[in-house]
């Protein structure tokens, strides 16, 4: 479905995950973060960039992998993106919901 955001429209799925990563930009990221009630700090951005890099390399994401990435440990990841950090962080980053859950 289409979603109006930042004076443009993006394609999202039923859960609000972006379908085309190419439509993402920083402004959209900030707006998606606001919707998730998160104010983005420098640390948030480092994690979002890491997630996007992994997505470009087609590496599947999991909480475990992010915890071992050296970018952030799991505790801090939860502090930055409370409740369901991987879901929230990937949604803001504009990448598909991780399919680590088969």
């Amino acid at each position: 479905m289409e979603k109006a955001i930042c004076n443009t429209t993006i394609e999202v799925n039923e859960e609000g995950f972006m379908i085309n990563f190419s439509e993402w930009n920083k402004e959209i990221g900030e707006e998606l973060a606001r919707e998730a009630m998160i104010e983005l700090s420098e640390r948030h951005w480092e994690i979002i960039e890491y997630i996007q890099d992994e997505h470009r390399k087609e590496v599947p994401l999991s909480i475990r992998k992010i915890g071992k990435s050296g970018v952030v440990d799991i505790k801090e990841f939860y502090a930055l993106f409370p409740k369901a950090p991987l879901k929230t962080a990937t949604k803001i980053a504009g990448v598909p919901k991780p399919a680590s859950c088969i």
């Binding site: 999991s62 475990r64 088969i102």
Partner: peptide, 8 residues
């Protein structure tokens, strides 16, 4: 605990 698991 975490995914993936055998026979989810």
């Amino acid at each position: 605990t975490e995914m993936p698991i055998k026979c989810p």
